[in-house]
Amino acid sequence: MKIVEVNQENFEEEVLKSDKKVLADFYADWCGPCKMIRPVIEEIADNNDAVKFVSVNIENEEELAEKYSVSSIPCLVIFENGEEIKRNVGLISKNDIEKMIGK
């Protein structure tokens, strides 16, 4: 499954109104640790249809970063029924991401 890049316009539709649980990856191109985590998330996404995977480029989407108080990346936020239920800041292992989304 692909990771969908979301923005201010479609965030509500893609994330808040999603039927599935959503993992949102807040990242930036200059952030090394973010680049390290991305392939790990892609690997999980390939084998998980129960969760939707989206990414938010905080450089382009300052308002979303501000709204969700993201001030340190990589930052993974799990949304369910439009609400944030979990968050991890910083590097994280594949196992721990899977625990976060409830494998």
Binding site: C34, I58, S69, S71, S72, G90
Partner: peptide, 13 residues
């Protein structure tokens, strides 16, 4: 992640 960071190049922006 709420004001404290250990990586300026990651979070400075």
């Amino acid at each position: 992640g709420k004001g404290i960071s250990y990586c300026a190049t990651c979070d400075g922006a």
